[in-house]
């Protein structure tokens, strides 16, 4: 950064006729670089804007104003439609399909699933990470290695047998069926937390032991508070992953009462008539599905951005 402006800044200005205060000449390389970065940022942001713009449009007016950067015939109708707040006549009038959809319900289901998975997975993985990082027992490293090998198995490979298992347990179309496979552990979460637990200072722990604290007390009162930052990061990542998962809930949670947002979006898309799709409704629904994660990220995202790196891998 400091380097980039160096050469023109020091040599350039003095050569020019000196009527004005010496001015830095434009560094064209930097201008081009900034332009490229801005173009990439626009490409990144534009689809989000377009999602918002379309969701605020009247579906009937979209065809006439397909290229307009502003919402076509601004209305909240699309949101009312997908949240089940519009009557069939209102929905049809704005180009909806008239089929009843209730994204409030799917929103609730997604919140239930993502919350339960996050709490269970992070807590149980923290316990396991404690056993791997802070306790000594025979075979520890071998077991840890076995856990890690699960990272190599492609998810679809375990998905088929897991589906059979969940079906045999009679848990199809229940929340339990959706959350169980990821509720207890993922290899990544154990690995991620163990890395941090290994690095914690032993002295405080020993002092607590001398004071007679047991392992449970040390885990809850010392380890968890000391590792609050990585635990928060992992929780955010787990929540987002659980929220965005599609294939598993598609297989085991088709029914409405447990249908999560991603599955609901797929259903909504396949129900929309081929000839005149309800684009505004579809975009309103995708916005509803995307918004909670974006809000979570806006509040806590700084931590996530800074934590992306190789700490979790190397």
């Amino acid at each position: 950064m400091t380097v980039a402006t160096r050469s023109p800044g020091t040599h350039g200005p003095r050569v020019r006729s000196g009527q004005k205060a010496p001015r830095r000449p434009v560094n064209w390389g930097r201008v081009v670089a900034w332009a490229a970065l801005i173009v990439l940022l626009i490409v990144t942001i534009f689809p989000f804007y377009w999602m918002l713009r379309t969701s605020l449009s009247n579906n009937r007016a979209l065809a006439a104003e397909a290229g307009s950067p502003l919402p076509a015939d601004l209305t909240l109708g699309a949101f009312e439609r997908v949240l089940g707040m519009a009557t069939t006549e209102e929905a049809l009038a704005e180009g909806g399909s008239g089929a009843s959809v209730n994204f409030w319900l799917y929103l609730r289901n997604s919140i239930v699933v993502a919350t339960v998975v996050t709490i269970g997975q992070v807590f149980f993985c923290a316990m396991a990470a404690y056993a791997f990082a802070r306790l000594r027992w025979p075979g520890r490293d071998k077991v840890f290695f076995l856990f890690l090998t699960a990272l190599m198995v492609p998810p679809i490979f375990t998905t088929l047998p897991n589906f059979i298992l969940i079906r045999d347990l009679g848990l199809l179309n229940t929340f339990a069926g959706i959350v169980l496979p990821t509720l207890f552990m993922t290899p990544f979460a154990v690995f991620f937390l163990r890395q941090f637990f290994v690095g914690l200072s032993r002295e405080i722990e020993e002092a607590a032991m001398i004071d007679g604290a047991g392992h449970a007390r040390i885990f809850f009162r010392l380890i968890i508070p000391m590792a609050a930052a990585p635990i928060t990061t992992l929780s955010i990542l787990t929540y987002i992953n659980a929220w965005n998962d599609y294939m598993w809930p598609l297989l085991v949670g088709q029914e409405e009462n447990v249908r999560v947002l991603t599955v609901a979006l797929g259903v909504f898309r396949s129900q929309t008539p081929q000839g005149s799709p309800d684009w505004a409704g579809l975009m309103a629904a995708t916005l509803i599905a995307a918004l909670p994660v974006m809000i979570l990220f806006a509040v806590l995202g700084r931590r996530v951005v800074n934590s992306i790196g190789f700490s979790g891998i190397k």
Partner: peptide, 17 residues
């Protein structure tokens, strides 16, 4: 953070948009 935004949104959402 802006650059990371698309990654946070579900595949399904991205596909539909």
């Amino acid at each position: 953070g802006l650059v990371l935004l698309p990654y946070l949104v579900a595949n399904v959402v991205v596909a539909l948009v």
